[in-house]
Amino acid sequence: MKAYSFSATRYYTKKHEWITVVNNIGTVGISDYAQNTLGDIVFVQLPEVGSEVNTSDECGALESVKAASELYSPVSGTVTENNTILEEKPELVNTDCYNQGWLFKLTIKDPKEINLLLNEVEYKEFIISDEEKIKK
């Protein structure tokens, strides 16, 4: 497996989004694995502030020089903020996906939904399994 970065403070989805939670506010982005797989991000479409999203809802898109990919919400809630810097600098998703390259924030509707996501170890195992399927 390639050397991807992970964080024990984040929860991950099988669609490669991550979320951190502070005081019931979730910050969402895509994983290092996802940004690496997509290639150079050239455009980011994010959910509208104030919109309601449900777990696994398609809520935006990322376009790279290689492909376009849908963005899914890891949990249910109300979008409170978008990372507007990405409008001018979408490449931050590639260069700093866990910090400056975050995508949106939301007020979490049901904090128990976090327990359904993957922790760092589970996500690493998922990627290894995914890469092995691709090789076959």
Rank of each mutant, 00 (worst) to 15 (best):
A3L: 07
S5V: 05
A8K: 14
Y11Q: 14
K14F: 00
K15A: 02
E17S: 05
W18P: 05
I19N: 01
T20I: 07
V21S: 02
V21Q: 01
I25K: 05
G26C: 02
T27P: 03
G29Y: 01
D32R: 11
D32G: 11
D32V: 11
Q35M: 03
Q35Y: 00
N36V: 02
G39K: 12
Q45P: 02
P47C: 02
E48F: 01
E48C: 03
E48N: 13
G50N: 12
V53D: 06
N54M: 10
N54H: 15
N54I: 00
S56L: 13
S56I: 09
D57A: 13
E58G: 11
V65P: 10
S69H: 06
S69Q: 08
E70I: 09
L71C: 05
Y72K: 10
S73I: 09
P74H: 08
V75I: 15
G77Y: 12
T78C: 13
T80F: 03
E81D: 06
N82Q: 15
N83G: 09
T84M: 05
T84K: 08
E88A: 14
N94W: 04
T95S: 15
T95L: 13
T95M: 12
D96E: 10
D96T: 04
D96F: 04
Y98C: 00
N99W: 10
Q100G: 13
G101I: 06
G101S: 11
G101A: 10
L103A: 08
F104P: 14
K105C: 04
K105L: 01
L106D: 06
T107N: 10
I108S: 06
K109E: 15
D110W: 13
P111C: 00
K112V: 15
E113M: 04
L116H: 12
L118C: 06
N119M: 07
N119T: 13
N119A: 06
Y123R: 10
K124G: 01
F126S: 09
I128E: 15
I128Q: 14
S129C: 04
D130K: 14
D130M: 11
E131R: 07
K133I: 13
